[in-house]
């Protein structure tokens, strides 16, 4: 598409740097082994989700939440904001701190990220689902549960590494963040959900087509794929 000459030039992609890869050792091992683990947990509860989506998704919620918190604490660098060195990239923060002494701020940050994601994130994502055509008057528990899972998958790591810095979150929403495993996973969740909506109208009369089974499945698969791709495309920025 020939771009118009009057279009404003987007801010330079170098405003933010991608997250470093997890340290070799336990962190990297967990980061690699984690997606298959979570997907297996999801696959194990898949049949009960199809049978009764809302209760089964709620049952799965604590497990996903715990795993996401665990993953964030173990594998991800703490947000630059929380370590009081806003100007410095997250990379430096991680190296300076001792490996044993910072687990309390890590855990508390992860829990705060969990709370923010589950409250604010769920609300925003549920509204987004409705805007894209989710039922308004019916299936409210299902939509909320679906949004909560999306918030856990995409939101917790994002809040954990970026904090609540407005400028960073603008870059996140504007697709200006450079790719890394956290950002890739978040974009993957949204794309997976978008693609997950596609099989719903087909007249195959399958149980799994009911709301919101395909959406949640898309979220989990998109999360795993996005996380892997985020590592592969680390540092790249989407051109709009």
């Amino acid at each position: 598409m020939p771009s118009s000459p009057s279009a404003p030039t987007p801010p330079a992609p170098s405003d933010f740097s991608p997250l470093p890869l997890p340290q070799p050792g336990l962190a990297r091992l967990v980061s690699i082994a984690y997606p298959p683990l979570l997907l297996s947990a999801y696959a194990a509860s898949f049949s009960s989700i199809i049978a009764a989506p809302a209760p089964a998704l709620l049952t799965l919620l604590p497990l996903t939440a715990a795993l996401q918190v665990f993953y964030a604490v173990l594998c991800l660098p703490l947000s630059a904001q929380n370590s009081n060195s806003k100007a410095q990239p997250a990379k430096a923060v991680q190296r300076k701190k001792s490996r044993h002494g910072d687990w309390i701020p890590r855990l508390s940050t992860a829990l705060i990220a969990l709370i923010i994601s589950l409250s604010l994130g769920t609300a925003v994502l549920a509204i987004t689902l409705v805007l894209f055509g989710a039922p308004i008057t019916t299936h409210i528990p299902e939509t909320l549960a679906c949004a909560a899972h999306m918030a856990l998958l995409a939101g917790v790591p994002l809040v954990y590494v970026h904090g609540v810095d407005a400028e960073r979150w603008r870059a996140v929403a504007a697709l200006l963040m450079p790719m890394d495993e956290v950002y890739g996973a978040a974009v993957g969740v949204l794309l997976g959900v978008w693609i997950g909506a596609i099989p719903i109208p087909l007249d195959w009369d399958r149980e799994w087509q009911k709301w919101p089974c395909t959406i949640v499945t898309g979220a989990y698969l998109g999360w795993a794929a996005g996380k892997a791709l985020g590592v592969g495309l680390r540092g790249k920025v989407v051109v709009v």
Partner: peptide, 27 residues
């Protein structure tokens, strides 16, 4: 199926246009 449910699929696609507007606006 999609032809029968086209009222929903067009809404889905036009909401996607809204998402593009959001991203461009934020940039």
């Amino acid at each position: 199926s999609y032809t029968v449910w086209e009222d929903r699929t067009t809404l889905f696609l036009s909401s996607t246009t809204g998402a593009l507007l959001l991203i461009s606006g934020l940039r």
